[in-house]
């Protein structure tokens, strides 16, 4: 399967199954498009009609080049992965390598669009005790098999409302590393209100990544991210974020925003973040029911797709000016990206990745917490709902018939089970709007790679 598109002056050809990416001129672009349906003579005739200035010999040379790439398995390569799709998860058995620790089901903000219903996940509020957290870490280590790299995200609600427990859990995990031959990578996701010098010092010493919630422009951020008195939080958190990021050397963090119907023109918020001095940026579409006033409409989806293109073009400008910014979804490592087994198996929710509630209950990921039928078990007894785990184990890009003809399937790996469930009622469903946005992001990300290669070549 081949996908061709033109963006920002680049003609790009993706070969889905080999992962090959080609940047071509207009003649090659047209030849590749004609290749499956026409004979060599037919292609030559069509190209000479369309590009009368190109000598016939050059057309034949280009056809030979295309044939060579096909022979090398880099164009129109066959899809031979269907039989491998479940292998990695089957081979991994019941290994778990990552936990999202919900250390606080409560929050000091009252954001109306919160997927976690103001941090309580449609249930009661509460904080995780050290004993529950310690048991969760023991559960993770004892189920991690031969995996060395383990990941723990301190999440909520607002995790800083349970700061003392976080510090003790980090210390406990560190005490296990040498004797159990494990390496913990910690992430902290916070709204920033409780950041102080002690949090900055500890986070910059122990957290491999911090995710800082900021929606961009003050009027956008303060419209929804308010405290229980209705006051916006922008003025209180921005200086704290700037101080934390400076102390961190400007690395290993993300400013993470959410865009809604109110700011489908979200690039203005990203550029605002950049103007505040932040360079590592992530901006995501809101996750909510279609009836919610914050929900993106079909018209918004078209706006957002155009915004992704504007963002890519602006990033290119800033890169050339020596002031680059990083957008999470545009980070593609073309030489050291995930292997095919990872691409076939997806994010690992419900199998190698689980969320833990403050009371020790296990869910397939943070977005399923609070939906009782998705409870997998708990950190004392392990996974008891094995049928549910098997459903998630069988969840991959080849288990979704709608993905069969999608050129982006080995980039998205079938997408997010939670988004699919909330959109269709089935974890193996398809969240169409999410797919559209994902494909546009990948097109933009690859265009940026083509531009970067050109800049390197010129240098």
């Amino acid at each position: 399967m081949v996908h061709q598109y033109q963006l920002n002056g680049y003609n790009i050809v993706l070969d889905t199954c080999s992962g090959s990416i080609h940047v071509v001129d207009e003649v090659a672009y047209d030849i590749i498009a004609l290749f499956p349906d026409k004979t060599t003579e037919g292609i030559v005739q069509a190209i000479l009609n369309r590009h009368p200035d190109v000598p016939e010999k050059e057309v034949l040379d280009c056809i030979a080049e295309v044939e060579q790439l096909i022979g090398q398995g880099q164009l129109y390569s066959p899809d031979s992965f269907a039989s491998m799709a479940g292998n990695f998860k089957q081979r991994s058995g019941n290994i778990i390598k990552a936990l999202c620790l919900h250390v606080a089901h409560t929050c000091n903000l009252n954001c109306s669009y919160c997927f976690a219903s103001q941090g309580k996940y449609h249930g009661k509020g509460g904080l995780m005790s050290f004993d529950v957290g310690k048991q969760a870490l023991d559960f993770l280590v004892s189920h991690s098999g031969d995996r060395v790299n383990l990941e723990v995200d301190f999440f909520g609600g607002e995790p800083l409302l349970n700061w003392e427990v976080i510090k003790r859990l980090v210390a406990y995990a560190r005490s296990l590393e040498t004797k159990r031959h494990k390496k913990f990578r910690f992430t902290l996701t916070t709204n920033g209100l409780l950041i102080d010098d002690e949090v900055i010092d500890f986070a910059n010493r122990e957290m491999n990544n911090v995710v800082l919630s900021l929606d961009g422009r003050k009027e956008i951020h303060d419209r929804l991210r308010v405290d229980y008195a209705g006051n916006g939080s922008y003025d209180r958190i921005v200086p704290k974020f700037q101080k934390l990021v400076r102390a961190r050397g400007g690395k290993n963090y993300y400013i993470r925003g959410t865009f809604t119907h109110a700011n489908a023109d979200f690039t203005n918020d990203i550029f605002h973040m950049a103007n505040l001095g932040f360079t590592e940026l992530s901006m995501e579409p809101v996750v909510c029911s279609p009836e919610d006033p914050a929900a993106l409409t079909p018209a918004d989806i078209e706006t957002v797709k155009r915004q992704y293109e504007i963002l890519a073009q602006e990033m290119l400008k800033r890169q050339k000016a020596g002031q680059p910014i990083t957008f999470y979804h545009y980070m593609l490592d073309l030489t050291g990206g995930p292997c095919i087994y990872k691409r076939l198996s997806g994010c690992g929710s419900g199998t190698e990745y689980m969320a833990v509630t403050p009371w020790g209950d296990l869910y397939p990921c943070h977005q399923f917490v609070g939906e009782e039928k998705f409870k997998l078990g708990d950190v004392w007894n392990g996974v008891e709902n094995t049928a549910l785990r098997e459903q998630f184990r069988s969840c991959n890009v080849y288990s979704r018939p709608q993905c069969a003809d999608c050129w982006a399937k080995l980039y998205c790996s079938g997408g997010c089970a939670a988004n699919a469930y909330h959109a269709t009622g089935d974890i193996r469903g398809i969240y169409e709007a999410g797919c559209e946005l994902f494909r546009k992001r990948i097109e933009c990300a690859i265009m940026l790679q083509a531009a970067a290669a050109e800049i390197t070549e010129e240098a």
């Binding site: 090959s20 940047v23 280009c62 073309l334 030489t335």
Partner: peptide, 9 residues
């Protein structure tokens, strides 16, 4: 004349 540049496999 090479009209195709391969960026990645």
């Amino acid at each position: 004349m090479k009209r195709i540049k391969t960026l990645a496999t």
